[in-house]
Design a protein around this nucleic acid. Structure first.
Length: 894
RNA sequence: GGGCGGUUAGCUCAAUGGUGGAGCACUUCGUUUACACCGAAGGGGAUGGGGGUUCGAAUCCCUCACCGCCCACCA
């Protein structure tokens, strides 16, 4: 057994207060020195595994990471203690666009661009950056105390991981799921790459709807079209109307002149046109609008390109000279001016509409005609839909299943190519000689068809999410059949943010079903979003984000973790950040610390021994009951992912039951020879168990206190509390009797305190108390507890009266069938007493009225269950009895 | 445009259809040797509005308002 030393020895100079910083750095260092986080595969145990959503290497820890990291760590630590074979796979994502942006920005400061360096040198620069800064966020995670398997850090550009990506790509390619598509896609003119639909953020923009007249050729009049992007009209090839539209039927097949140019456009009919919207005439610009592209395809129209990749107007025959090379938004103004002058601008309406922005740099997306690699989704989505519909993959809260299903059921093909340099280069090579094109897992030396060595690899890289999609199995070594895959796959849970359900979760599900023939995880936990104190979205760029590291500095990691746990994942998922909640849990840490100090002081030289049930006092039996009830509730709550319930159970037990009541009673019992020994045993059992019960939530403080507690032989051999078994309730200690008896004692004590305060009995004076207890059984219980009641309620003499009469000038309170009487004698303030009695009378009268209302209401007696009726009736009787007493007392004062 | 979530004490949140709770803040008292980052007591609420179901609604149904989020190819 280790020697027991007061933990305050480690926190000198601070009376009583818990110092989280010191304890946290001490144990972080210890944990890493002992390598407690290294993976240890235990055969023949059930598994619990989970992959950390890999943060971007450019990232820094924000509230979402901290919250999600905590929730996962709570489960991981819990399951580890419950004897599961546990894996928590950590790692980072190379984050294509983000990382390329960061390094480009850095180069820009040095006056260079990536083109100056060339592809190879640039990628080298990014790697350099990655080695220098890429693990920042993981270091920040350490402050939170997360128990990743740190020896298994993965990165989406690790050698093995890259093999997985190429295996996946080539397989999909050979099976025909990946194809080259020529069409209009989302394009960021700043990042100079295409984007998938999910990487486009729709923001509400206050813009304009321009109504422009296209004159008819060879006759007077014209058609008026509506557009939000007049500059794109230069690429128009037709005006479309709905074939059913009576207003325009007659124009179909005629010709209009495109303003600002000499071009003539046909008027065509297409049911895509909405008769209700705008003028009912739609200009068709196939190269610069995804829908127009479709219309153009249907009608075999050309697709002239007028805007280039950087969002500037092209210098070609479609664009009037004055706009050549001009930015798209400047051109918009120019086109509008020109139209005004030619009196072809019919109207400008204010118009609020959703405009796509680049998720990374917030530039307005330009629909852009290009060749991209697409993944055909329909067939791949089907089994993934089934997996969720059939409950093999379960979302928690379950409502998020519909977010997923809605997306998957309306799935569109996925553009997986990006025109970037940082990422996984698309493993497709084309023979320069015979133009044969194919995908290869490793670079081919020669063309398999003609043998030529002149092969060119596709310049594009894969969408970052293509590699993330493989995360749960690629990190475990797939496509190799590793032991880790065998032991830990499919994983148990995935805990993540709701905003990436489609972007990431959906894609892991379909890739896993495709390549592993099984689901990637059983439960998908969707955690809440922490908002600013006034309910806004936290955003680094807006400067309203709260840094979790600051909060850890200020309140301690455990306090932060406790708050995250108490937030839970079930209820409201928009959680406002409130610093006073952290304050609360910091105080809780302090409370626990001081309780620990007390317990440790009592256990000096103590050797753990079993509890002897027949020697327990009421208070002992009561706290053991409460303790085991708490354990039961906590286990149930965790099992259902009710983190908030578990946190509340632990908080309330610790503060309200253990500290406020049991420790106070223990002080009395410890001073008496007959009860001292069992009290120490109970204190030890409960407090030691409480440390283990809390450890998943608050690893630092529990590790510190537990390390100082006397422990049984088995436990002293453990490197850390994290390997100790998680406590479960022992039903033998459930004791409703103790619960009832103790709650009676507590009620009486509260009543004495209340009466003293109400009548201003000075705290220093020990007022005598008379108890008239109506029930003989209750009286017996209370008589046994006389010493405790006297001490805790600070009573002088405590006597039991056989009738309810009381000395004149007494203050009193009714508790169930009993009366708590405090004779005040000379202490009494007649006016004050009368005032208080009147107040109390009013309160009781209000209750009487309420109760009568229930009883008198229509069919209550007829239809409510009899036991309910009876209980309300007895309540009424009780209240009326109280009223009588109050009246009697008032009379006595006259 | 579609969908989801929320609206309870001054603030942040709890409450199997049965007389609405906690923490913070506020008021009063208190340094009793684990803790003043504490203890004790207290004040404070037509549960967003309006309908409906029910003996009984914060809770179930309808509707409106406001807040937040996701999805969406209506120019």
């Amino acid at each position: 057994m280790s020697t027991t030393k007061s933990p305050s020895a480690t926190v000198e100079g601070q009376k009583g207060a818990y110092n989280p910083k010191e304890v946290e750095s001490k144990w972080t260092q210890y944990w890493f020195e002992r390598e407690v986080f290294d993976l240890d595969i235990i055969p023949d145990k059930p598994r619990f595994s989970c992959a950390l959503p890999p943060p971007n290497i450019t990232g820094s820890l924000h509230m979402g990471h901290a919250l999600n990291g905590t929730l996962q760590d709570v489960l991981i630590r819990l399951k580890r203690m419950q004897g599961y074979n546990v894996l928590w796979q950590p790692g980072t994502d190379h984050a294509g666009i983000s990382t390329q942006m960061v390094v480009e920005r850095k180069l820009k400061k040095e006056g260079k661009s990536r083109r100056d360096l060339g592809r190879e040198a640039f990628v080298e620069q990014v790697w350099k950056w990655r080695h220098e800064y890429g693990n920042t966020i993981l270091e920040q995670y350490k402050r939170l105390g997360v128990s990743f398997n740190w020896d298994r850090l993965a990165f989406t550009m690790d050698e093995g991981y890259v093999k997985a990506i190429y295996r996946a790509f080539v397989t999909l390619y050979k099976e025909g799921f990946i194809y080259r598509g020529h069409r209009v896609t989302n394009w960021c003119p700043r990042c100079l790459t295409s984007l998938s639909d999910l990487e486009v953020e729709h923001q509400e923009v206050h813009g304009h709807l321009y109504l422009i007249k296209y004159p008819l050729v060879g006759e007077s009049g014209g058609l008026t079209v509506a557009t939000t992007r007049p500059e794109s009209m230069l690429g128009d090839v037709a005006v479309a109307v709905n074939p059913e539209d009576e207003r325009y039927k007659k124009f179909i097949g005629r010709t209009v002149k495109l303003p600002l140019t000499e071009r003539e456009l046909p008027v065509i009919a297409d049911s895509y046109v909405d008769v209700e919207f705008g003028t009912g005439c739609l200009k068709i610009t196939p190269a610069h609008d995804a829908n127009d592209w479709e219309v153009g395809q249907r009608h075999n129209l050309p697709a002239p390109v007028v805007i280039d990749a950087e969002g500037k107007m092209l210098a070609n025959e479609y664009v009037p000279k004055q706009f050549h090379g001009k930015d798209r938004f400047i051109t918009r103004q120019g086109v509008v001016e020109e139209l005004k002058q030619q009196e072809l601008l019919v109207e400008i309406q204010d118009y609020v509409h959703g405009v796509g922005h680049c998720e990374r740099c917030h530039t307005v997306i330009e629909p852009y005609l290009s060749d991209q690699w697409y993944l055909s989704m329909k067939e791949l989505a089907e089994p993934a839909i089934k997996a969720v519909e059939e409950g093999r993959v379960v979302f928690i809260p379950e409502r998020y299943a519909s977010t997923y299903l809605d997306w998957m059921q309306n799935i569109r093909d996925w553009n997986i190519s990006r025109q970037l340099w940082w990422g996984h280069r698309i493993p497709v090579w084309t023979c320069e000689e015979c133009k044969h094109r194919d995908a290869f897992e490793t670079a081919p030396e020669q063309c398999p068809q003609c043998g030529s060595k002149k092969l060119e690899q596709d310049p594009d890289v894969l969408d970052t999410w293509f590699s993330s999609a493989l995360w749960p199995f690629a990190t475990l070594g797939w496509p190799q059949e590793t032991n880790e895959l065998k032991v830990f796959y499919p994983t148990t849970i995935l805990s993540t943010a709701r905003e990436i359900i489609n972007l990431w979760v959906a894609r892991m599900i379909f890739t896993s079903l495709k390549f592993l023939k099984t689901i990637p995880f059983k439960h998908v936990l969707i955690h809440p979003v922490i908002q600013t104190p006034d309910g806004k979205r936290m955003s680094k760029s807006k400067g309203n984000a709260i840094d979790p590291l600051d909060m850890i500095d200020r309140y301690g990691a455990d306090a932060n973790r406790f708050w995250f746990t108490s937030v839970g994942i079930k209820g409201d998922q928009d959680v406002r950040f409130r610093e006073d909640r952290l304050e609360e849990y910091k105080r809780f840490s302090n409370k626990l610390w001081n309780a620990g100090k007390f317990v440790l002081a009592q256990l000096e030289g103590y050797t753990p021994k079993g509890i002897e049930a027949d020697k327990l006092t009421l208070a002992d039996r009561w706290i053991l009951h409460r303790y085991n009830v708490m354990l039961r509730n906590v286990n149930v709550a965790f099992n259902n992912y009710d983190f908030d319930d578990a946190a509340r159970e632990i908080y309330d037990f610790t503060w309200d039951y253990f500290c406020d009541w049991y420790i106070e009673i223990a002080k009395i019992q410890l001073a008496q020879e007959g009860t001292a020994e069992q009290t120490r045993r109970v204190l030890h059992v409960v407090f030691e168990g409480l440390m283990r019960a809390m450890h998943p939530i608050t690893p630092f403080i529990t590790e510190e206190l537990w390390s100082k507690l006397p422990k049984s032989e088995l436990f002293t051999q453990l490197d850390s509390i994290m390997f100790a078994p998680y406590p479960r309730e022992d039903e033998r200690f459930f004791c409703e009797e103790a619960e009832n008896e103790m709650s009676l004692v507590m009620k009486i004590i509260r009543s004495i305190r209340n009466t003293r305060q109400t009548f201003n009995v000075p705290a220093g004076s020990e007022a005598d108390v008379i108890l008239h207890i109506g029930d003989a059984g209750e009286k017996a219980i209370l008589e046994k507890m006389t010493d405790y009641i006297k001490r805790i309620a600070r009573a002088g003499q405590l006597t039991f009266a056989s009738d309810s009469s009381m000395p004149p000038r007494s203050a009193w309170e009714q508790v169930a069938s009993s009366k708590v009487i405090v004779p005040l004698g000379a202490l009494i303030d007649v006016e004050k007493t009368r005032e208080k009695l009147q107040q109390r009378k009013q309160a009781v009268e209000k209750d009487v009225q309420k109760t009568k209302q229930i009883l008198d209401s229509a069919d209550f007696r007829k239809k409510a269950p009899p036991e309910k009726v009876q209980s309300i009736e007895s309540q009424l009787a009780e209240l009326e009895k109280q009223l009588n007493s109050i009246d009697a007392q008032l009379k006595m004062l006259e």
